[in-house]
């Protein structure tokens, strides 16, 4: 990745704008990736050969790399064809590094951001359940009474 990592605050701002863009266009994808940031901390080849599980027990907790991106989208030619109504959009990539001690706080914000951003998913359908509950309550009341 050519771009430098953002701070966590900047990352959340970017993430929100990715989701916002997704909502505005009405279609598209947001990719989120997390992995251990082991770059620069790799053990030497000798150490690896000695202990095949060298990465299973690092000396100290390692930071985590979080990446976010959207999809590239390109307009198709020809009226009426699928994709002819969309705009060209370039791929946006952002990333941030979360230090192990900030992990909990980060994920709390992360969950909030994702819940707010993923508005296209199906909401919980409460109507049916409420009706069922009322029926059950009524039935139970009858039995008691």
């Amino acid at each position: 990745m050519a771009d430098a990592h953002l701070t966590n605050d900047e990352f959340f701002a970017q993430l929100a704008s990715l989701f916002e863009h997704n909502r505005k266009t009405g279609h598209g994808t947001v990719y989120l990736t997390q992995k251990r940031l082991a770059y620069g901390t790799d053990a030497s080849a000798e150490a690896k050969a000695e202990d095949p599980l060298w990465d299973a027990h690092p000396e100290q907790p390692l930071p985590i790399l979080i990446r976010a991106s959207n999809n590239k989208s390109s307009k198709r030619k020809g009226a009426g064809r699928p994709g002819s109504e969309r705009d060209n959009a370039t791929k946006t990539k952002t990333s941030t590094v979360v230090q192990p001690d900030q992990l909990e706080a980060f994920y709390v914000r992360y969950a909030e951001a994702c819940r707010a951003g993923m508005s296209g998913l199906k909401k919980r359908d409460r109507t049916k359940k409420k009706k069922d509950k009322k029926k059950k309550k009524g039935a139970a009341g009858e039995v008691k009474g």
């Binding site: 997390q34 251990r36 930071p63 192990p100 819940r115 998913l121 199906k122 909401k123």
Partner: peptide
């Protein structure tokens, strides 16, 4: 999944897996 209700729980799962990744 396609359920909005699951997102919060799944991010919680991601956070627990993140602890594995951070070796915490």
């Amino acid at each position: 999944t396609n359920k909005a209700a699951e997102v919060g729980r799944l991010i919680g799962t991601l956070s627990r897996l993140g602890r594995h990744q951070a070796a915490l």
